[in-house]
Amino acid sequence: MDAIFLQILNGLDKGGAYALIALGLTLVFGTLGVVNFAHGALFMLGAFCSVTFQKLLTISKHVKDESITFFDAFKDQPYLEIWFGDFGKTIIDYSVPLSILFAIPVMLLIGLIMERGLIRHFYKRTHAEQILVTFGLAIVLQEIVKSMFGANPIPTPAPDIVSGSAHIGVLFGLGESVVYPWWRLIYLAFSGLVIAGVFAFLNLTTFGMVVRAGMMDREMVGMLGIDVEKKFTIIFGLAAVVTGLAGLMYSPILPPDYHMGMDFLVLSFVVVVVGGMGSLGGAVTAGFLLGILQSFASMNEVKAIIPGIDQIIIYLVAVVILLVRPRGLLGREGVMED
């Protein structure tokens, strides 16, 4: 029982990441009609926003280490600590959550530049060409990050307070032994919040209504006198922010490296296809579902029965679903039918 509960939790937080990426992917695909293979790179860029922010905060001065009196020792002390003392230390400690403030404008800008500079010229081109150009773009972004930050993963720790584990078992009347890292719970809550936010935005605002209409019939919306192109740019920016935040918040769980985007991209594409191309609800459902399935498949008991199942379960599910239900779980008729 405890084990199953833990696996569901495990799956939920991974599923949260999948769902967020798939959400952005579907937004872009549903409205702009563009298959964006550079979407994983946005996830990676988001994670590196937190790295950059942490680096900025910890710009240090080479000072004499007073605690060692035997000989002249030097240490690096961040300027923030020198200026603000303990408050500076706290800021550095909270660098990951604080970097959200930094990441939102940055990711928005990146998204806008990408859409204006490249993606917009591909609305009318074939899907194959869209895939190819965004694939190239993904390589470029990835290599730029590699040349700036190196090839090794860079640890970005979560704030001290939440670095431990929560005794979550007690809450649900399970065992004392059921513990779970705080940050992963935060990630889960965060992804839920962002998903709810995006859905609220789409369902409660006029802009969202236009977007939903655009997902159903792009041409018609354009004919009604709405500047579709402008909306598309904003949507792409929004998708970039959502995906970037997903990557940023994931950075304490998985130290960012330059190819994490590619790893997540393949999976999130599978998630989108399983959920049904162009269906936002489907993307979210499939994200969590596949996350949970994957975490169950990586249990030792399951692996003992079918070895290697944890490595391929997602792809296997995707293959089966596409063959049985070609439109995906919640796919609508008429989207990507040809």
């Binding site: 194959a128 594409f269 995707a318 070609p326």
Partner: peptide, 13 residues
């Protein structure tokens, strides 16, 4: 059995 982008993703999978 599928074409277009679905085919690309299936082969990728």
């Amino acid at each position: 059995r599928r074409s277009g982008i679905y085919f690309s993703i299936l082969t990728l999978a």
